[in-house]
Amino acid sequence: MKVPKDLRYTKEHEWVRASGQEAEVGITDFAQGELGDVVFVELPQVGARVTQMKSFGTIDAVKTVSDLFAPVSGEVVAVNTELKENPALINQSPYEKGWMIRIRVANPAEIESLLSADAYEKALGAHA
């Protein structure tokens, strides 16, 4: 199971790739494995505001549905529209092609509050 070192994480299994004022968000390799085949993902529109630890969308796998939680607050500046046609990208490439939204971060301190890769791996260890 992959947990890239350069990303930050939530306990709800989202990842964040921070660069400048923006944060790209997706779900982790662990999360996609637990969900199984993703068949639909519902994401906000560009311009929508999301709030840290509040739901910003939902993800339907064949067997189950799950909420997606915003790792940080801010405005959605980009949405991965390819997921509409090909939601399986989330399974195939959770950290790259399976990215979901990019947020203009309202409060950079929120990023600092997220888990490091090591801390996330420890949290996962408690699952196993």
């Binding site: 199984g36 085949d37 068949v39 064949v62 067997k63 399986a88 399974n91």
Partner: peptide, 8 residues
């Protein structure tokens, strides 16, 4: 076993 390579 719920799945091996994936349900789809």
């Amino acid at each position: 076993p719920i799945q091996y390579e994936g349900i789809v």
